[in-house]
Amino acid sequence: MSDLLALYQDIILEHNRSPRNFRKPAHISHEAKGFNPLCGDKVTLYLNVEDDRIQDVGFEGSGCAISTASASLMTERLKGLTLADAASLFQQVHHYLTQNSATSPLDPELGKLEALGGVRQYPARVKCATLPWHTLQAALLNRHAPITTEMETHADE
């Protein structure tokens, strides 16, 4: 069970039970859908960007605890960021989640998002955590075709 507690940290479980920003905002400028065909996880991410800044963000969908908490923590963090900041946050988190936990240290700059790092010991679950982030990337590019974690396989390699 000890490994499991690294994956399912309290903050993950809490965000899974009460996801933040789980709604469709009234004004939406950017939107993207993400899908993991292996487990059926679905997420739709909405951004409202004004003057190059993310003024509002919300998400809908259904997924496991990891993907739900990842989306919830992500939306919390995104509010107020510029588009460029959001894009670099994507890079930072993606790098962190897909690195081998043994060789790459925790990233204290990530703050609460660090809790997502538990997946690094669970190769089968990494895509659960990265799904909302890839959806963010698609939304920032205003890509309309839904993205899937199977496309992500190539991006991750």
């Binding site: 499991l4 496991c64 605890a65």
Partner: peptide
């Protein structure tokens, strides 16, 4: 209730138990 099958699958796996968590190639049924 309140726990996604994928998460159950991971916890069971840690106990040595192999089950399937997913749509079982039967999406219309899900």
């Amino acid at each position: 209730e309140g726990i996604h099958p994928h998460d159950i699958g991971t916890v069971l796996d840690q106990s040595g138990i192999a089950v399937r968590a997913g749509h079982h190639c039967a999406m219309p049924l899900m």
